[in-house]
Design a protein around this nucleic acid. Structure first.
Lengths: 68, 68
DNA sequence: AGTAAGTGTAAAGTTAACCTTACACGAAAT
DNA sequence: ATTTCGTGTAAGGTTAACTTTACACTTACT
């Protein structure tokens, strides 16, 4: 799913690894989500939204994304 | 995860099966979410929120729920 | 009495969201 | 030149979110 994780991560000056630590997933999981390889679980989406002070919808573009 | 799916479903006068049809999951999936057997995928959470005209956070209580 | 509708739950299978390990690459610094 | 850091990606494994099928139970209707 199309998302703004990479932009927000860079805005916060974090590496993929650092962001992974903060939300308790691996760096590869962050990478995969940024590259749209798979969709986050609802908990991961929530954690990312919380960290970046945004709603899930602000980060993840449901309308513009293709359902896999 | 604690949620308001059952209340909202009944508010809309839907059976579990009817709700399942509307969001393209089985009736058992709806039942399991209502009974907190498992957490919805992010897409299912989105579909339910959209159907009920609420945000995901309004329906699913992340703060008050235990992470499994 | 019988039947239909709604719900609860269980078993077995599939799939996708993770994991760890590993390797390759480019950029930047020493 | 070589090391370090960040990223991209692939392989193989685990787990949970689903599926279908099936059965039991309650309530309501005829």
């Amino acid at each position: 799913m199309i998302n703004k994780v990479k932009e927000l991560r860079e805005l916060y000056g974090l590496t993929q690894g650092q962001l992974g630590e903060k939300v308790n997933v691996s760096r590869q999981a962050i990478n995969a989500i940024e590259k749209n390889k798979f969709d986050p679980s609802i908990w991961l989406a929530y954690d990312l939204a919380k960290l970046f002070n945004k709603s899930i919808k602000e980060i993840f573009d449901f309308e513009g994304s293709k359902r896999k």
